[in-house]
């Protein structure tokens, strides 16, 4: 299993030319081969959502996708959210509403929420709760995450 394929991953608008085995997960490729360690791995079996990134506009679990499947697609990770020094409204809302403690789950929640709200800006509160319940956080008890995402949704709609 050591045959490597050369491919290019486009992460936050930047191309990364890498060579990986066919079995390498996108999460590992983003972290280890492209050095973007903001994307976290919490379970490697598709449940915790810590590894959530946005691929072609849709939030996906990068531990469930192979790197080779992401070639030619637009990948966005937490490192690409802020605009220079200015935090993305979602990041700012997490700060304002204390939506993080240890911060390990945070990149996954940010990408999940941003990905969904960009596609469905008018999503109702209950559906949003359903979406957020697909990621796990062990520190916050979720209420502040929910508040943060709702506040950011307002703001993103206002734009």
């Amino acid at each position: 299993m050591t045959d490597k394929t050369a491919l290019t991953l486009t992460i936050n608008g930047r191309d990364h030319a890498i060579a990986v085995e066919a079995r390498r997960t996108l999460a590992d490729a983003i972290r280890e081969d492209c050095g973007q360690t903001g994307t976290h791995i919490g379970c490697e079996h598709g449940i915790c959502g810590a590894c959530t990134v946005i691929v072609n506009g849709e939030p996906v679990r990068s531990c469930l996708m192979f790197a080779v499947q992401a070639e030619g697609k637009k990948i966005r990770t937490v490192e690409g959210l802020a605009d220079g020094e200015t935090l993305h409204p979602m990041q700012q809302a997490f700060m304002d509403h204390h939506g993080l403690q240890c911060g390990f789950c945070t990149p996954g929640f940010l990408m999940l929420a941003v990905g969904v709200l960009e596609r469905e800006p008018d999503i109702n509160d209950d559906d949003l709760l359903d979406v957020l319940s697909s990621n796990l956080c062990r520190c916050t008890g979720y209420q502040n995450i929910i508040k943060a995402v709702r506040a950011a949704a307002e703001q993103m709609r206002g734009k």
Binding site: H40, V78, E79, L100, G103, P107
Partner: peptide
């Protein structure tokens, strides 16, 4: 918060 929100945390695997 700031480094954690920016994806600049340094956890063990990093």
């Amino acid at each position: 918060d700031r480094p954690l929100l920016l994806g600049k945390g340094r956890f063990a695997a990093d």
